[in-house]
């Protein structure tokens, strides 16, 4: 079974504040060498939506991946 949540960051709106990274209970995000947010471990996402709700720039969307889509 593939991962069941798809996380997308709208890089045009994201300001790399790090709030999603700091408070994600599953530590899904990391910084790259230019201090930009990277979705490094999407498979750990439990779909709690806290990053989506906390983002001050409305830049993250977490979407449940339907069963068929996840058979990659």
């Amino acid at each position: 079974m593939g991962r069941s949540f798809h996380i997308e960051i709208n890089t045009k709106w994201c300001k790399n504040c790090g709030i999603c990274l700091a408070f994600c209970p599953q530590k899904v995000f990391t910084w790259d060498e230019k201090q930009r947010i990277v979705i490094s471990y999407p498979e750990k996402c439990t779909g709690c939506l806290l990053c989506e709700y906390r983002c001050p720039d409305l830049a993250i969307e977490v979407r449940k991946v339907e069963e068929e889509e996840s058979h990659e």
């Binding site: 045009k12 709106w13 709030i19 709700y53 906390r54 983002c55 001050p56 720039d57 409305l58």
Partner: peptide, 21 residues
């Protein structure tokens, strides 16, 4: 009009986020 004009990490935007939902 987005991105918002606010500074990086300004959580006034988080209120907006909750409000629109």
């Amino acid at each position: 009009m987005f991105p918002l004009f606010t500074c990086s990490g300004c959580t006034h935007g988080t209120v907006t986020n909750a409000f629109v939902r």
